[in-house]
Amino acid sequence: MTTLHLDWTRCRGRGGCVELLPELIGRDEWGYPLTATDVPVPRALRGAAEQAVRDCPRMALQLSPRFAE
C-alpha cells in the first residue's frame, strides 16, 4: 500500500491537501493538516494523493511504497 508522508518542517498549513483528501486529512484549529506523519492511502485515493503531492505549495508531501510505521 502507498503511504503519504508529511514533512512537518515544510508544511505551513496552506490547506491544499485537506481539500484534495478530505477522507484522510482534516484541518486543526491552527490550520495544519490533521493527520499522522505517515498515512496509508487506499487505492481509490491514489490519484488525489498524487495531485496533493504535486500541488502542495511547500513541497511538504511525498508518496512512498513503504508502510506507515
Binding site: 491544499g16 481539500e19 495531485q51 500541488d55 505549495p57
Partner: peptide
Amino acid sequence: ATRSGRPLPGLPRFAVTAVHR
C-alpha cells in the same frame, strides 16, 4: 494568492496553485 493559502471565489486552495502553474 497561492502564498496566502486562501481559496479564491470559485477556486479551492489546491486549484489556485494548479492554475498558477
